[in-house]
Amino acid sequence: MAYNFDFGQVISGEYGQWLVSGLVTTLHISAVSIVLSLALGTAVAVLRLSKVRPLVWASAAYTEFFRNTPLLVQIFFWYFGSYNVLPTAVNDWLARRDFEFACGVIALTVYTSAFIAEEIRSGVFSIPKTQLEASRACGLSFLQAMAYVILPQAFRVVIPPLISQFLNLIKNSSLVMTIGVMDLTYMARQIEAHTFHGFEAFTVSTAMYLCISLMVSLGVNLYNRRVLHARAR
């Protein structure tokens, strides 16, 4: 089977713009989901560390369930399945917005927050228990002790694993193309459908993902070297 390679068509002109707009969408949806999943993950971790039984159970159930089901199934659930469980008013409100994008954000946020909660929890465990006891003895409440004493220290330890979770999120965001979010992977498939030059489109989009990943892991390595090792010294 003959195949004519034609990179020019894919990286310039209309199709080149498609890829760029796909890249922008990928970065956009990832950025929003990263911020939200960090907040949600922290909240879930704090619940897990509280000594209140029902909260601990709820938080444990949340992390276990969302960590142990495929993201793709979760995306489908939020997109097609949430309609029947949400109130009509919420559905109408969502439908008027960019529903595909919102759904992608929800799925990525919930999925990643379960992993982030676990990372933060293990980060907090690495802080000596006496820290919490000492701050409680100083008269801080549990939440205050968490917010001002424990979490700031824990975050410094968990930043590298957190960033690798964020990187996973960026890579996982390619799945939102299944519900019609026009991200980088979606655009690569569109170009394939229009031009039958899938090879070039996939090469360029894979290279884009790789660039993002390599830049982020470079950043983590620098951080490890500068901050963690400096502290160890």
Binding site: A2, Y3, F7, F199, E200, T203, A207, L210, L214
Partner: peptide, 22 residues
């Protein structure tokens, strides 16, 4: 990285041309 992609594509092209048209 882009460059590596180009090189790999070029290698693929070479493989492709060598493939027999059965």
């Amino acid at each position: 990285m882009r460059k590596a992609a180009w090189i790999s594509a070029a290698v693929c092209l070479a493989v492709l041309c060598a493939a027999p048209f059965a």
